[in-house]
């Protein structure tokens, strides 16, 4: 975390500069947002899984989305990428409205996601997995498919690009193996490499470290940082706080479907709202002097409000 400060890459500096001086408030506006989300709501029966008022993702940064289990992170991801329909709300990607756009069109616009449970296409080879990611393939049209000369050239270009990516992800030795024969970590790498074949602007990674052994974690981290180097924006969901601190430029915290806090990674975990969300608002930790004082002020304010004739209960509801 601190070891590489001397050699901080320029993209990281740029990203950090963009976040400098931003207040740690949920929904804080960013200087150059690639993704702007407004009032997205998703209910499952009586349960409100997602209720995000406003959130912006800074272009060219690595933004982490964290939160306790059941906070609605993955559901929120599904809304944004068209895999689930939001009940209300809208969001724009590069200024283009994306609500109601089907998943495959979201991907074509440059917003590509991976999945929490890796979706390697087991009975296709690693190379075929990669080729599938390329966009605008002439051979994917039924009639063109019958005339190989129409798509051979393009296929060779795609293969070349895929080989380069596989070499970067150290999967080149496996390129003719079935994807189903890869280990869990290799599948994560393959899924990320495949997503890059689409040529995305915004890469959305759903728990990229889940089930990856520690030896591979470092290389995965390097690859995620690399995405920012190449000018892509990364939004990822993660539980591993070490990873979040290590690579993210900005952290958004969700709890019970809502964004409760935002901020730089080194201070976000000391935010009382975040501690409350993870440990519960009334966890029985001994009170610090400031907290005691704060509670005192609250009580005083309540008393005063009551004296002025405003019932305390409505104030509580407003909170």
């Amino acid at each position: 975390m601190h070891a590489d400060e001397g050699t901080t890459p320029s993209s990281r500096k740029a990203a950090l500069a963009a976040f400098a001086g931003l207040p740690s408030e949920p929904g804080v506006p960013k200087p150059d947002p690639i993704l702007v989300v407004d009032k997205v709501v998703r209910r499952f029966g009586g349960l409100t899984a997602v209720n995000v008022d406003h959130v912006e993702i800074q272009r060219g940064s690595i933004t982490a989305l964290i939160g306790p289990n059941g906070a609605g992170k993955t559901t929120f991801f599904n809304q944004l990428t068209g895999f689930d329909t939001a009940d209300a709300g809208e969001w724009t990607f590069n200024g283009r409205k994306m609500n109601g756009v089907p998943a495959h069109k979201v991907a074509r616009h440059g917003m590509v996601r991976t999945f929490q449970l890796t979706k390697a296409l087991s009975k296709l080879t690693v190379m075929e997995n990669m080729r599938l990611g390329a966009q605008g393939q002439r051979g994917e049209n039924f009639f063109n498919a019958l005339i190989p000369s129409l798509w051979r050239g393009q296929e060779d270009e795609i293969t070349e690009r895929a080989e380069k990516l596989l070499a970067r992800f150290k999967l080149d030795a496996k390129s003719e193996d079935f994807a189903g024969s890869l280990s869990g970590g290799q599948r994560k790498l393959l899924e990320m490499a495949r997503a890059l074949m689409v040529g995305p602007e915004l890469v959305m990674l759903d728990e990229p470290m889940a089930g990856v052994n520690p030896a591979l974690t470092q290389s995965l981290l390097g690859h995620v940082k690399d995405l920012r180097e190449q000018g892509m924006t990364v939004l990822f969901v993660e539980h591993d706080m070490d990873m979040v601190r290590d690579i993210s430029d900005w952290v958004i915290v969700m709890a019970q479907g809502a964004v409760i806090s935002e901020g730089p990674p080194d201070t976000i975990m000391s935010d009382p709202r975040v501690i409350d969300a993870y440990l519960g608002a009334h966890h029985d930790a001994p009170l610090s002097a400031e907290e005691l004082e704060e509670q005192l002020h609250e009580a005083e304010a309540e008393l005063q409000a009551e004296a002025e004739g405003t019932p305390a209960s409505t104030k509580e509801a407003a909170e």
């Binding site: 990428t81 068209g82 895999f83 089907p102 998943a103 495959h104 069109k105 991907a107 074509r108 590509v112 996601r113 991976t114 999945f115 979706k119 390697a120 296409l121 087991s122 009975k123 296709l124 075929e128 997995n129 080729r131 599938l132 990611g133 966009q135 393939q137 002439r138 051979g139 994917e140 049209n141 039924f142 063109n144 498919a145 798509w151 296929e155 495949r194 997503a195 074949m197 689409v198």
Partner: peptide, 20 residues
């Protein structure tokens, strides 16, 4: 490539959707 998309759908259609 057309057939490749079909086989990919057989394996996991959500993955194919996420690839546009």
């Amino acid at each position: 490539p057309w057939g490749r998309v079909l086989k990919a759908i057989r394996e996991d259609e959500d993955a194919v959707r996420s690839l546009g």
